[in-house]
Design a protein around this nucleic acid. Structure first.
Lengths: 233, 233
DNA sequence: GAGTGGTCTAGACCACTGT
DNA sequence: CAGTGGTCTAGACCACTCC
């Protein structure tokens, strides 16, 4: 009857997940303790622990010391998304990837950027605009600001040859960052860049990365209409 | 000098991550083996293994047997997103959550749905439209189809009292699912529902869940303009 | 205070893969 | 075939929290 191999932690995880999904263990219910399960599956408690910890991370289980392990009331509420590496994503579709630098200027921070990058108005910034193509079609329009007070070397880099992303990854260590996903209506400018209609819905990805010394770079990418980000539950 | 406690796996993980981010171990470089690190940190190899496996899952490291562990060329390309539980998300902002069923009809699958839900044209479906409010503001417009051939009980449920999501979670076990994020321009209908302008950019979340017997439900949620989904790198 | 999960250890064997 | 990571074990102690 049991198809999964319950001698390793992946098998145990699959079996536990199956019991949750089939309703044998219902949302909110307490499941047997680790030692009890280790007897049932004929393995060490550590192995059961490994399996259950994974499920807890994925949001299927809620675990508390003393209180035991319960099936989450909202199973599968966490999803891991792969942040697309544009070159690979496009080449994965069998299309030719091309990158084009549109504009590169130095500037100061306006009030919006001061807020987004948490920099003073006096900060020296490098503002880059670029396009990523999938074949002949524009795929992503990207706007990036680099904080030159923190990364002065960036002023001398030729971003026509190497995309800012590639250069930053290999040359500038960072300590933390965040990412935001949202949707906007294409402006006239953006529509022209992406060869779509003004006020089309665009998928927007914003990223900031920083070190202790402050925000290094802020980038926002506008994906051509129809872009979809996909994940399994 | 070293602030993190390197006696437990989280501490070791933090230390390794710091070395990557500070550039001590650069993208593409081979890092010391597990046994070597376990000597350096004064712990068992299993503890180092736990730390490094976590970083590999997050996309910071690439590990291969025999070949060793390398720093990923694209650090932090995976992000775990919390799928918002609308009620909790709204209440977390200090606003009152309210749910309203707009429409509930039985229907057959049109060609789009046949594709999305992988059902035949003869499938009996229940089509629900509803709104989630944050305070007085519409927050999400939701359209859902439930496959009545698989879940006939759904025909008798009063979805005015309990949202379809809540009912499904507690009553219908599922085996798998997927989720898609995208952006669209609001239609006139959607704009009316969400009290926004037609052709505003809307963040759309689509989810399907299924068992061996087929797709149980397909739902798409349209978030009011300005919605942002956020995560840490 | 007692029982749960969280973690560590030391050792062992296995699975994969580069040379 | 040798060396790396992947996993398991049995036992131990700790940390938390419900009763």
């Amino acid at each position: 009857m049991k198809l999964t191999n319950t001698t390793n932690w992946q098998g145990i995880q699959a079996e536990v997940l199956a019991r949750i999904r089939k309703g044998k263990w219902k949302p909110g219910a307490l499941i047997p303790g680790e030692s009890e399960l280790s007897v049932e599956f004929g393995c060490a408690r550590a192995t059961v622990n490994r399996a259950l910890q994974g499920l807890a991370e994925l949001g299927y289980l809620d675990r508390k010391r003393r209180a035991g392990t319960r099936v989450s009331l909202n199973p599968a509420r966490k999803v891991t998304l792969e942040i697309p590496v544009l070159r690979l994503e496009i080449e994965g579709k069998g299309l030719v990837y091309r990158y084009e630098l549109l504009d590169q200027v130095r500037c100061k921070a306006d009030s919006k950027l001061m807020h987004l990058m948490r920099v003073p108005a006096t900060a020296r910034l490098l503002h880059l605009k670029s396009l990523h193509f999938a074949g002949c079609q524009p795929y992503v329009f990207e706007e990036r600001w680099i904080h030159l007070n923190i990364i002065p070397q960036a002023a001398k880099v030729d971003f026509e040859k190497q995309s800012a992303n590639e250069w930053l990854i290999t040359n500038v260590p960072f300590e933390a960052g965040d990412i935001t996903l949202s949707a906007i209506a294409a402006t006239v400018q953006q529509a022209k860049r992406l060869e779509c209609q003004s006020r089309d819905g665009l998928f927007m990805v914003e990223r900031s990365t920083w070190t202790q010394r402050g925000v290094i770079t802020y980038v926002r990418q506008f994906f051509a209409p129809g872009y979809r980000m996909h994940a399994q539950l």
